[in-house]
Design a protein around this nucleic acid. Structure first.
Lengths: 166, 166
DNA sequence: GTCTATAGGTGGATAGAC
DNA sequence: GTCTATCCACCTATAGAC
């Protein structure tokens, strides 16, 4: 909960600290508002990109959307990855909803493919795909930022045994 | 840098705060010592498990070691995942060394398989495998802790197109 | 509804006794 | 080498003027 104070945020936004508290109630409220905004954005991107797709094509679409989201909102992505499993935080609900909207797009499809599979294993596979895309995306931006999007996406798809041509 | 104060740590360890500073110099020094310890532990596990293996078998061994490490040291794993891409932190060196020892076991092998591939793409694939294993592992412990290790490992290996029998 | 000023509390770090 | 006591910087949150 440190690293950036309300003073810093208010300064950067060009408003006074009091206004932040008037509008968001607390620092946690502000964080939640920001995370929630990004969650809705990702939800819309996923809905649009996966509509009508199943199986490998659907999984590849999710990977592509996640990589693009990491590229376009790397700060938010870093926060989400960092907070995803820190269940004690006050904005836990926001990060868990973020996990849920991704799993939602993957788990049902896994179960439809393999009716004998359990929810837990489908969840593990969804987490594996999510983690592969996010980690590769952040690693890309941090250590090889000059690599073009398409090549990184193809590398991740190859790692997951997914079709490069969708 | 919040969440746990030196007071808390000293209390829990049954020693006084002054002793922590005498032995570690600063809070960052303490964090680095802990992270470094876990890094060396993981390094040994990886060395032992991947020795003599190449290709899919080597990648499967890395996944297995990472999942076991997450299971046995989930707190450390959460910290590592949370800090891996926060390059501004003072213990950046420790987390980057942690990334390096995993990539070391994967990147050269990728390049041996595909001499035409670039370092950057091999790095992306290594990150994808690392992220898949860590995220699936933490998701497992947080949301489906009753699932047995072997089934989660097999689900992750399947997600990565790796052989379940190694 | 936005500002300034300040209260109130926390936590990293140090001094100095033992 | 470990303890207690204390300093001081910082940061969330609120009060109250405008």
């Amino acid at each position: 909960m440190t690293s950036t104070s309300i003073d810093d945020i208010a300064d950067r936004a060009g408003i006074a600290k009091g206004s932040v508290y008037y509008n968001f109630g607390s620092k946690a409220g502000l964080v939640e508002a920001v995370l929630s905004e990004h969650t809705h954005l990702l939800d819309e991107m996923l809905e649009e990109s996966t509509r009508g797709l199943t199986g490998d094509a659907r999984r590849a679409a999710v990977v592509t959307v996640l990589l693009r989201a990491v590229q376009d909102h790397s700060d938010a992505a870093r926060v989400m990855v960092a907070e995803m499993f820190r269940t004690e935080r006050s904005w836990r609900e926001s990060t868990q909803q973020w996990r849920a909207i991704i799993h939602l797009r993957l788990v049902d499809d896994f179960l439809a493919e393999r009716p004998d599979g359990s929810q837990a294993l489908a969840s593990a596979q969804a987490a594996a795909i999510t983690g592969a895309a996010l980690t590769a995306g952040l690693d890309w931006l941090a250590f090889n930022p000059d690599e073009p999007f398409e090549r990184v996406r193809d590398a991740v798809l190859a790692s997951l045994g997914l079709p490069v041509r969708g």
